[in-house]
Design a protein around this nucleic acid. Structure first.
Lengths: 147, 147
DNA sequence: ATGCAATAGTTGACGCATCAACTAATTTTC
DNA sequence: GAAAATTAGTTGATGCGTCAACTATTGCAT
């Protein structure tokens, strides 16, 4: 077992990504916490907060607050589901749709920067490995068996 | 350019890692934010807060508070440098040294869990790719040239 | 059908990380 | 050697994410 822990690198990249995207999205009044929700909705509108939370692995309390913020900024609308009135379904506003390409471009620029110098195969392999780690999180005994 | 952004995976792994290590270290009264500092000191004691901040890519204000917390918990001592009195040098207490193996083991368990199912070569390649991305962060025009 | 469990979402409290502004010590510049 | 610039660390304010406790709605059991 090497002391080369992958955790440190992941933490660093996460923090630096937040710093970058916060600056890059400032002119849209969007934050590093908010854009992942927009991205999730760009692929499929009308998701419930529950679906967004589990897709992004973010606490539902955080989702509540971020959706409220996106609502206030005019990026999304919230509609109570008619069949299951516990659910809020989230939709994009025209503003969000119009700015989609530019917002996505800004964020993707970060990806482009940090993966500069990696050939495509290396990138794809790294992506696949990280995806496997995320999958592994789910079926892990850890979260129950701690003391 | 694929929409398969590596950023989402990194965020997820970071958050889940925090949740796990917070639970795993609870009996040591240590948090996910604190153990990286101990690890850095295990490899080399007597670092300054500045050195710790830049090694971990963590804001120096956060470092101030985390060192203060580790001090209160009896894991480190803080000594003003004799030659450059602006610097605080941080040392491990006996308690920190005695518990090193167990603390390290608890955290490494997380690594072991999420990398289960990856063969060693895949892991090493992923690690190398992430390291390259971290290196890339440094020499990037981004942090100055935004608007 | 009543009652109980599960699910979706909200709220309050807390810890973490950043930023900006500040102090104190050191180094550079002239 | 004094003034200016740099560096190390601290403090206050703010946004983010988790946890725990709560409400409201729905599903299930008998």
């Amino acid at each position: 077992m090497q002391h080369k822990s992958i955790g440190r690198l992941i933490s660093i990249l996460h923090r630096q990504s937040q710093i970058y995207t916060n600056k890059a999205l400032k002119e849209f009044s969007l934050t590093s916490a908010e854009y992942p929700f927009l991205f999730a909705l760009y692929t499929k509108e009308g998701r419930t907060q529950e679906e967004l939370s589990s897709y992004l692995y973010i606490d539902k309390a955080a989702t509540t607050r971020i959706i409220r913020s996106l609502l206030a900024k005019g990026y999304v609308t919230r509609v109570q589901d008619g069949l299951d009135r516990r659910c809020n379904r989230i939709f994009l506003t025209e503003k969000a749709k119009q700015q989609q390409e530019e917002i996505r471009g800004r964020v993707m620029q970060w990806n482009a920067y940090i993966t500069e110098g990696l050939d495509d195969e290396t990138y794809q392999n790294a992506f696949a490995a990280l995806q496997k780690m995320v999958d592994q999180v789910e079926n892990t005994p850890l979260f129950e068996n701690l003391e």
